[in-house]
Design a protein around this nucleic acid. Structure first.
Lengths: 81, 81
DNA sequence: ACATAATGTAAAGAATACTTTACATAATGT
DNA sequence: ACATTATGTAAAGTATTCTTTACATTATGT
């Protein structure tokens, strides 16, 4: 239940950052490689703390790494573009 | 151990947003009032999903609500090969 | 051929986030 | 005085995240 509403660009960012390995990212973020694998694969979403650490590892804001797919909180009409 | 490294401006943002009550914020974020109380008081940090929902409730990016106090950033040179 | 590095799956247990229920207090309104 | 609203504490239970361990596959180097 409550499947994951968060997508991410971790794989893309790893390759853009000198092909950083999952292990290297795990070290930088202070978690295990398994955690990186699971999050990168979208199996579950990280804690906010880990999200900050991963974003820091790439030197970008959280929003550049993770995107929240809001399904329907309510009809929040914000037509942009 | 591993006490919370995340601070937040929820209380300030609530009052700036027409004195939004904790209950109202909880409704908007889809969690219970207890969860809002605990996070606002810094008892624990939210999941990334909830962080996004709370930021959305105020119409601001996550960084405007939550700040990561990084204590020791890991040096880059420890698994260089 | 063999070793090593990088990625992947799986599953049990520990740690943390979140819910539910219950009760308490101060402030406001009738 | 009484009811209602907003905030707070606490504690037990559920759900989710994260760790630990083990093993598999593909690619690269010697």
């Amino acid at each position: 239940m409550s499947s994951n509403q968060i997508t991410n660009n971790i794989r893309k960012l790893r390759f853009e950052n000198d092909e950083m390995t999952q292990q290297k990212l795990a070290d930088k973020a202070g978690v295990t490689r398994q955690t990186i694998i699971a999050i990168e694969a979208g199996k579950y979403s990280p804690s906010l703390t880990l999200a900050f650490k991963i974003a820091d590892a790439f030197g970008v804001p959280i929003e550049d790494v993770f995107q929240y797919q809001q399904q329907d909180l309510k009809t929040n009409n914000e037509s942009e573009s």
